[in-house]
Design a protein around this nucleic acid. Structure first.
Lengths: 234, 234
DNA sequence: CAGTGGTCTAGACCACCAG
DNA sequence: TGGTGGTCTAGACCACTGC
């Protein structure tokens, strides 16, 4: 069934396969022809078909299993690649002026819950930094950060007044793993004051714990100004 | 510099390169050797190196540009692949019993804001369905959905009392694009009653608009029970 | 303009696992 | 156990883009 002009690049194959899925020529759950067959039909090497189908599987449109073959995914909308907001970039991308103010910086024992979660010895002091990120002088994001100084002692000399802890850590620490979670909190009195919100107002939060191997480096909670939404597309 | 045993599969190359990034042998912003060099060092084909480096670039660890070469990314934590929660799977994965109750189902003109956002003609009725998803009989998620019946007329015959609209649409409609956003809202009186929350309590929400080509099929807002967080890892 | 990554090909071998 | 996807190779050509 070698039809029209050969599809001799993987993007073209990708596009054609996606078209067949979208037009329901190939329906959810249905098995599609094997790589060799498609290569024959499209007039290209099997490697090229493989590249295209692998991309579609990564994106969630196909389910592939050896021997079982390739099927159209039942629910393509359950995978998304998300751009984790980096305050400076997000603000500058909107054409606004980025600002940063350090509100607090001091050594302190972490809240017990955090100490346990990071599996630190009790009574270990951490560096606690609080800051607010501004868009055209309007508060955008409140950052509440705890840093494990035993893991990155140099951070005590970091110029946190002018440079966000994140920027310093990215350059100076070895970050191998991150656990990230998203949720909602009611603004505390203090958060409300800092972010220009009403106390109790619902705020979007991101929490991230960053590790070097298994050693915790830092825990941070980002609390966004009211109305903030994080977007993605499939 | 062809050292020990050859790394003749892309996962091994992937691992070795990631190791050099993690140990800061190759530092953020630094340029790394070209594919040909690495292939020589590792004792494998350039294609294999390419596969590994491409995966690392997709994951955000490397930045690659023709002619400019490959550099260690400055901020590897800004990309994450997210598993969009599907209520049934999420609940069953926790070993709980999944339940579903349809609360409302009727034709109605959409709120003006929604009608505009979907670019529908004024006075177009939509199918409005509200449902709650239960985990062991405890409310987990409130679903507020509007469906464009002009795009999927058959949905009027869908057994929404026993099957969630999402499951029906995935099978019966052509979904080519989705816009997704995450945020926080204060529970309304009604949401609080349904979800077992206090009025005003901060709740995590996901909103998704789904399209066939450019035609809107459905808009849905998921409001999660208090304390819910969505997780991912890098 | 030249060096880098991006890709295609043809052939081959292999791991996996559904039937 | 045989068919399917997963991968490697060697060689080649090309597109992009920094210098």
């Amino acid at each position: 069934m070698s039809a029209g002009r050969p599809l001799n690049n993987w993007q073209a194959v990708h596009e054609e396969v996606l078209r067949r899925i979208h037009t329901r020529e190939w329906r959810p759950g249905q098995i599609i022809p094997g790589e060799a067959d498609l290569a024959g039909e499209f007039g290209c090497a099997r490697t090229t078909v493989n590249r295209a189908l692998r991309a579609l599987a990564d994106a969630g449109w196909l389910d592939r299993r050896r021997k079982a073959g390739t099927r159209v995914a039942l629910n393509p909308m359950q995978k998304a690649t998300l751009a984790i907001p980096v305050a400076r970039h997000e603000i500058e991308a909107r054409g606004q002026r980025y600002g940063y103010r350090l509100l607090e910086r001091r050594m302190s024992p972490p809240p017990p819950e955090l100490g346990e979660r990071l599996d630190l010895r009790p009574e270990t002091d951490m560096l606690h930094a609080e800051a607010v990120h501004l868009a055209d002088d309007t508060p955008h994001l409140f950052e509440d950060r705890w840093i494990n100084v035993e893991a990155v002692p140099d951070v005590l000399d970091a110029p946190l007044a002018t440079m966000s802890a994140n920027e310093w850590l990215v350059i100076n620490a070895s970050l191998t793993r991150g656990d990230i979670s998203f949720g909602a909190v009611n603004a505390t009195e203090r958060e409300a004051r800092i972010l220009g919100a009403k106390p109790g107002e619902a705020l979007f939060t991101v929490e991230r714990t960053t590790f070097e191997r298994t050693r915790p480096i830092t825990w941070v909670r980002l609390v966004f100004a009211p109305g903030y939404r994080m977007h993605t597309r499939i």
